[in-house]
Amino acid sequence: MIKRETNRRHLIALAGAALVALSAPAFAQDKSIVVSSTTSTQDSGLFGHILPLFKAKTGIDVKVVSQGTGQALDTGRRGDADVVFVHAKSAELKFLSEGFGVKRYPVMYNDFVLIGPKGDPAGIGGTKDIVAALKAIKDKGAPFISRGDRSGTHVAELDLWKAAGIDIAKDKGPWYKEIGQGMGAALNTASASNAYVLSDRGTWLSFKNRADLVISVEGDNRLFNQYGVMLVNPEKHPHVKKEYGQAFIDWLISPEGQKAIAEYKIGGQQLFFPNASAPGA
């Protein structure tokens, strides 16, 4: 019996040690920051390309938590990230005005593309006019997959319906499906059900399960997608690692960081276009 109790004590000690070992990186003032970002930057592989360069230069580990833009901003609001890196300018400005961000820096843009089945049931192939295309989809009742997750892409999609004069909340029919998931899941769903879907170009290019999907509409100015980066306000959340976070931001908008972004290509195609110095971006 004595032996058995010793065993138990060992077990408890072991569990304690394991927990301490696992949490050690959190307690130690390690050289790392948490960046809450969007699924598009993660799924497209951009971070996999630029973060090693940043780490080599500064020694700072960047831990990326990728969520929809709305959720990513909320993570910043709660103080669970040091930096937010998202793409929904109006939501970012709101974040700033609430005092959760220090300053917004434009970083880069990519564009959205309307993806659809090769068979083109809405008959929109070849047009550059995204608004006309959406009208056609609605008129024909062609299947359309919406992210429905308050992400930057979802917000952009809603803005486009509005621009087309369609009140999607009221006018949607069985052809319009909100799946409430990330970009990849939306593309998988579209691929499985031969539907149209709005995607950022980066995720589309790195997406592998395309089946019959192709780009239906691209190149419209209204498909422009601006990314901004902000340090979470240390006055709201004192634990924010402002020096490391600011170092990451400074690097992203530096010539070196901008060059790294421009150099990221999939199949020879550039995904993101740096524009840190563009006025009003």
Binding site: V34, K63, V64, V65, G182, N209, R210
Partner: peptide
């Protein structure tokens, strides 16, 4: 965990990620 590459990525979250990237 946040599915952070090299820090909190497990087998299951990696599978979820690859699924979302369409690499079935």
């Amino acid at each position: 965990g946040g599915n952070i590459d090299g820090f909190t990525r497990t087998m299951t979250t990696a599978i979820a990620l690859e699924t979302s990237k369409g690499d079935l």
